[in-house]
Amino acid sequence: MSAFQIIALTVLGLFAALTLAGAFRTRRPTVALWILVWATAAVAIVEPNTTTWVAQALGIMRGADLVFYIAVLGGLVAFFLVFLRLRSLNRQITLLTRHIATANPRRPEEPATPKAADPGAGEPRETAGH
């Protein structure tokens, strides 16, 4: 086994362990998908010829090309999912900002009145926090 294979398998093992640890806490069904991704990557690293075999079965000549195509497609899908998540977060930030704004209207300033007996007269009125 080459040094690269050892390093790559160690990293994948770490990812798989983190995925499983997270699964115990959150119990998300996507854990199976992630384990499949890490396992497939591990097989491709240990037995590089399997990528060639799969590539040829799919009509692609070289295994390296298959890995490249999957990486590009995976990157695009990941980018799109992150973009959707950002849109959703943006929406939530706007709703929160709106909620805070409408809950704390700042009323028009009172015209200044010269009443000495009323020290609060002419002060801006805030109605925050109701």
Binding site: T97, R106, E109
Partner: peptide, 15 residues
């Protein structure tokens, strides 16, 4: 805006 007679709603960050 308040001084001129408006009720002001404040977005704490630009949206």
């Amino acid at each position: 805006a308040r001084a001129a007679g408006a009720t002001v709603l404040r977005h704490e960050i630009n949206r």
